[in-house]
Amino acid sequence: MKKLLSLMGISLLALMLAVPAFAADKPIKVYINGSNVAFTAGSPYLKNNTVLVPFRVIFEKLGLNVLWDAKTGTVTGTSASLTISLKIGSSRATVNNLVKKLATAPSSISGTTYIPLRFVAEATGGTAVWDAASRSVKINTPEASDNSEQQITDLMHLSNKYFNAENAAGYYSLVVFNSVPADSVDNLKEYFKRYDMVTTIESLDILSIQGNEAVVHTVEKSVRKGGDYLPDERYEYLHTLVRKNGVWKIESSELQDSSVLLTPEQGKTAAVLPQIDASAIKDSLSKYYTARNAKNVDGTLAQLTYYGEEYEASMKDAIAEYFEAYNLTETLNSSNIFYYTPDEAAIYVEAAVKDADSGENYTQSSIFIFSKSSSGQWTIDDSYLVSYSDQK
């Protein structure tokens, strides 16, 4: 037989390499809690008394989110309380960072990675029973009943965990693929390079579960730990989730409300900075308010940081629409630079606002973030509303 095989052509050899050696045997079937698992990327096969299966389907059916590292040939399955990593060709795996020895190493066949089924089933707390007569594996998980609420809760906390770990690929692995723009992972990586924010989920409410769709409301607190300046904030989100192949994923997240967590006392604590920069920042702020009161679109735009022609055009339209919709006069009551680096500053502002249309007067507190250009000019990058307080 070996001699015959050695005489076969290259095309036949390629075919043999593409199909596991058991191809002539009865196909192996896998059942999870009594349901047959369909494998589309490849068929389970038996090697060294170990059943190996394509990793993605089995991970998802067992409630794990999947990460694939093509460079290292490592597949990782995660939930809120479990992380399993296996590597092609390695007889060692990790379960929550504990090294485990495998009887049979994961393998790659025709671009599909196969992993040992029993190991993964038992690592997730289930049992796996091999029936030689029917060539089937029957897996029972700890909870065969629908535990969608726990899965959804675990998903939201895992998403938060990935964000705080600055794991962009992990974060977007929990999102429905067709709802993610192609450059999202790269954009999030750039965000992580620039900012260092830690987010805490303060409350999580599952508002509805209907079939394979769910709606979740969260209140989250974001606190700056370093990097470029962003104010601490509290957010309210409405998340839409969908269940695909038995696994819940995030389809969309809509911001419902946000509030800046800065007290007046914090905003009025003065930063230490050179007088020349302090004067330049406050001069730019004064020009900004003067231009706004005069409804001078170009004058207002001149005090904003330039991010290209497309950005400038959109901002110009937005400012013009704002002046058309509102008839406000804003008077600076006080301003204080409470955060400073040689390239960036944040200034706390209290302004008296008069609405000429309604006759209403109120005080508006804001944060303006300034950046310094290579030419030395300080301009406004962004602004945040802190609070409104009515005046009688």
Rank of each mutant, 00 (worst) to 15 (best):
D228E: 14
V175C: 10
V180Q: 11
L285V: 09
K316F: 13
N140M: 05
D69M: 05
L86F: 01
D205V: 08
F323L: 07
S90R: 05
K392W: 08
L158C: 10
Q391A: 02
V66R: 01
E143W: 09
G42A: 04
S387N: 10
G63P: 03
T379A: 10
S90D: 13
T72F: 01
N97I: 04
Y191W: 08
E213K: 05
V66I: 05
K47P: 03
S334N: 14
A38H: 00
S286P: 02
K26D: 08
K47S: 15
V185E: 13
T94G: 09
V219K: 02
R292V: 14
D257K: 14
S222L: 00
N33C: 02
G73I: 02
Y306W: 14
I369Q: 11
V37Y: 12
A320F: 03
T200V: 13
V219M: 04
T153M: 06
E251L: 09
S35R: 14
G170H: 07
L301I: 02
R292F: 12
K189Y: 05
A294P: 03
Q266A: 12
S134V: 01
L86T: 08
F22L: 10
E236W: 06
L304S: 13
L7A: 15
T83Q: 06
Y45T: 12
G308I: 08
E310M: 15
E122P: 05
S335L: 04
P142H: 06
T300E: 13
G125F: 02
A103D: 13
K295R: 15
G359N: 07
A351I: 01
P106H: 01
D381K: 15
S383G: 08
E220K: 04
M315K: 12
K2H: 09
L238D: 01
V260P: 04
E60K: 05
E143F: 11
E254P: 01
P264W: 12
Q151R: 11
A18H: 08
L230K: 15
L17D: 01
T40A: 14
